[in-house]
C-alpha cells in the first residue's frame, strides 16, 4: 500500500524532469524493478487466497485433532493422523482402488482417444458431427452420467439385458454393483466413456501439427500405415501424449463423483476410493484432521507420480 501511494505521487513528476539527480535515478531504477511484481500482484493474490491458503490450512489441520467450530481450540497431535492412515486397512483398500481405477482407465482413454482422433483427422462430411458426439460425454455432468451408468449396470439394467438376452454371453443376472471387481469395472467403464472425448480433442489438435510432407515422404519410401504411425506421427505428437498421460493419471486418482453415486463405496467399503473415504471422514464423521491428512497424502502421491512421469517421458522423448 505504501509502495502504491509513493508511485502515484511520484509518477507524474518524472517525465517533466529529464535531468534527474543520481539519487532520484537510483530510486527510479528500484521502482522499475518492482513494476513486474506489481502487475503480478492481483493474480498472485488470488492464487494465494484461493489455492495456497487452503493448502496450507489443510496441512495445518492435518496436524491437529481439528475442531470445526469457529474459535474453538484444537489439540495439536503432530503426525498422529498420518500414522493412523498408514495403519488403517480402509485407507490402503481405498488407495489401491484409486490406483486400480487409474490403471484401468488411463490406457483405454489414450488408445481409444488416439484411435478416434486418427479416424476423425480425415476430411469427411460428417466429421464435425462425430467430433461433437465424441466430445459430448466430456461436457455432460458427472452426476447425470453416474446415475445413468448406475441404471445401465443395475440388476435389471441394459448391460445385463444385452449380455444375457441379446448376446447370450452371461445368464444376464450379474449383480455388477454388488462386488468389488465388478463394481470397479462398471465405474471404470464410465470413466473411459466420459474421458475418451477429452484425449481425442488434445490428440486431434496435436495431429494438425504433424507435417504432411513427412508423411508423404515416408509413403514414398514405402512405409506402410503402421510404420508411418510409429515413426512419423507418434514422435510428432509426443508432447501432447505426455500432457495427456500426466493429466489422466492425476484425474484417475481424483475419481470421486462416480464412485459416490454408483456404489457409495459399497458393498462394505469394497469400492471405496481415496476421495470418497476422505469425504466420509471429513463430512460424515466430522474428523477434519484425518480427512485433511488423507488429502495431503493424496497430493504428495500425485505430485511424486507426476514428477517421475515428466522426468521419465521427457528423457525418452529426447532420446
Amino acid at each position: 500500500m505504501v509502495v502504491l501511494n509513493e508511485r502515484r505521487g511520484a509518477a507524474p513528476a518524472a517525465p517533466r524532469r529529464p535531468a534527474a539527480s543520481p539519487d532520484r535515478r537510483r530510486s527510479r531504477r528500484r521502482r522499475g524493478w518492482l513494476t513486474p511484481y506489481l502487475f503480478m500482484l492481483p493474480g498472485v493474490a488470488l492464487f494465494g487466497v484461493f489455492i495456497l491458503f487452503p493448502i496450507v490450512q489443510a496441512l495445518q489441520m492435518s496436524l491437529y485433532d481439528w475442531n470445526i467450530l469457529r474459535g474453538a481450540a484444537s489439540d495439536f497431535i503432530g503426525l498422529d493422523n498420518y500414522v493412523r492412515a498408514f495403519t488403517d486397512d480402509r485407507f490402503w483398500l481405498s488407495l489401491s482402488n484409486s490406483g486400480i481405477y487409474m490403471v484401468l482407465t488411463v490406457p483405454p482413454q489414450i488408445v481409444l482417444g488416439l484411435a478416434v482422433a486418427m479416424l476423425l483427422r480425415s476430411k469427411a462430411p460428417a466429421q464435425p458431427l462425430f467430433r461433437v458426439l465424441f466430445y459430448l460425454p466430456v461436457v455432460t455432468s458427472w452426476v447425470v452420467v453416474s446415475l445413468l451408468f448406475k441404471y445401465l449396470f443395475a440388476d435389471q439394467g441394459l448391460v445385463n439385458f444385452a449380455l444375457g438376452d441379446v448376446l447370450h454371453i452371461t445368464a444376464g443376472d450379474t449383480s455388477w454393483l454388488s462386488g468389488r471387481w465388478t463394481g470397479l469395472l462398471a465405474i471404470c467403464a464410465l470413466g473411459v466413456w466420459k474421458g475418451v472425448g477429452w484425449s481425442m480433442m488434445i490428440f486431434l489438435a496435436a495431429l494438425q501439427g504433424v507435417p504432411q510432407s513427412l508423411e508423404e515422404a515416408a509413403s514414398m519410401d514405402g512405409a506402410n500405415w503402421w510404420q508411418r504411425f510409429r515413426v512419423v506421427t507418434l514422435p510428432a505428437i509426443w508432447p501432447a501424449m505426455l500432457f495427456v498421460i500426466v493429466m489422466l493419471v492425476i484425474g484417475g486418482f481424483n475419481v470421486f463423483t462416480s464412485v459416490l453415486l454408483m456404489t457409495a463405496g459399497g458393498p462394505g467399503g469394497q469400492t471405496e476410493v481415496l476421495l470418497t473415504y476422505m469425504y466420509q471422514q471429513a463430512f460424515s464423521n466430522l474428523d477434519f484432521g484425518y480427512g485433511s491428512a488423507l488429502a495431503v497424502i493424496l497430493t504428495v502421491i500425485v505430485f511424486i507420480i507426476s514428477a517421475v512421469q515428466l522426468r521419465v517421458f521427457r528423457d525418452r522423448g529426447e532420446s
Binding site: 448406475k150 443395475a154 440388476d155 449383480s175 454393483l177 454388488s178 456404489t263 459399497g266 462394505g268
Partner: peptide
C-alpha cells in the same frame, strides 16, 4: 436379495 449387502443396482 443382495440389496441388503449393498448392491445399489438391485430393486
Amino acid at each position: 436379495p443382495n440389496l441388503i449387502t449393498g448392491n445399489t443396482g438391485a430393486t
